[in-house]
């Protein structure tokens, strides 16, 4: 290769490490890391800290691989929406083929390493999570039904279950309830956001509930799903990973979330526009702290149990 040919390499739009990292959707990864960590910590089986670290790393990388594959599949519509137009592929930094290659490589790496480090069931669940997010959610549901976020939310609900399986090697009621907590939380959380963010999903022909059924129906859905979420959240209190501390925190959080959902349901669009969607934004913020504090409460119970105080043993 001559120096002249090297000079012909374009200097604009070249991807750096940050662009490849952005393909992994780091903000989604942070939630995955936290919930998987809690699932691992609350399990009744001790895991060597380094094995635990590798397991969380694999789950995070698997989630990142899903993000890269999602960006590859959605590269045709990401450029049409303001929220996603600056992603590495529509920005011209990374080619779709690179994203596909990175996604497949990291998927294989994370699943195989998780299997070697922990057990086959945890690796199988991680593989299924990646499959579910890409094939079931991205390829199938996202562009075909306004219920996409309801069923697709399962992909984000698996990490605490995988964390639990890493430690115990099996799925139990506690793991299923942690899964159900995120699964039931996702729709009201997302629809509260959809109510106040001016989306352009219509331009990309993605059927979002706010656009296919209107905002009134979306408000009804937020309330119904919030009510359905409450027994799941409270039910965890009476399993081996719950306890009185979790129950008190959960009662307060559910009261706040339900109160916000009712206020959101009572409003019409004129009232929302008048105060610039203040209630919708408040409910969205409440939903964020709701999930974080529920899993935080589970960590507190686990810490108390380590000193002999957690759970219902003393009551």
């Amino acid at each position: 290769m001559t120096d002249a040919s090297l000079q012909s390499v374009t200097t604009t739009g070249e991807a750096g490490m940050g662009d490849y990292f952005a393909l992994l959707k780091p903000r989604v990864m942070s939630l995955v890391i936290f919930t998987a960590f809690v699932g691992l910590c609350v399990a009744p089986v001790h895991v060597h800290p380094f094995i635990g670290f590798v397991a969380i790393l694999c789950i995070a990388v698997g989630a990142g691989a899903s993000g890269a594959l999602n960006m590859w599949w959605d590269s045709d519509i990401d450029g049409l929406m303001r929220r996603t137009a600056k992603r590495p592929i529509p920005a011209g930094k990374v080619t779709p083929e690179e994203a596909l290659g990175l996604g497949i490589a990291l998927s294989g790496f994370s699943v195989v390493l998780l299997w070697l480090a922990t057990n086959a069931l945890a690796a199988a669940l991680l593989a299924f999570t990646i499959f579910f997010y890409i094939v079931v959610y991205s390829m199938w549901l996202k562009r075909s039904t306004p219920q996409n976020i309801v069923i697709g939310g399962a992909a984000g609900a698996f990490p605490p279950m995988i964390g639990w399986v890493v430690a115990t090697g099996s799925v139990s009621i506690e793991a299923m309830l942690m899964f159900a907590l995120i699964f039931m939380w996702t729709p009201p959380h997302f629809w509260a956001l959809a109510l106040f963010v001016k989306s352009d999903y219509g331009d990309a022909k993605v059927p979002m509930l706010t656009e296919t059924h209107g905002r009134r129906v979306t408000r009804n859905h937020v309330l119904v799903y919030t009510i359905a979420l409450i027994p799941v959240a409270l039910g965890i209190a009476f399993t081996s990973i719950g306890g009185p501390v979790y129950l008190v925190i959960s009662l307060v959080l559910n009261a706040r979330f339900l109160n916000g959902a009712i206020a959101l349901w009572r409003r019409d669009e004129d009232a929302a526009v008048a105060d610039n969607y203040a209630t919708e934004k408040r409910v969205f913020r409440i939903s964020l702290s709701y999930l974080f504090l529920h899993f935080g409460a589970l960590l507190i119970e686990a810490a108390l149990r380590a000193f002999g105080y957690g759970g219902w043993g003393l009551w």
Binding site: T2, D3, A4, L6, Q7, V9, T11, E14, G16, M17
Partner: peptide, 21 residues
């Protein structure tokens, strides 16, 4: 022209190479 060891390309991709390393 003989290719230089420290080409502009190396400089431009330093961050990426260090990251991979």
């Amino acid at each position: 022209m003989v290719i230089r060891v420290e080409h502009e390309l190396h400089q431009r991709r330093r961050g990426r190479n260090v990251g991979v390393g």
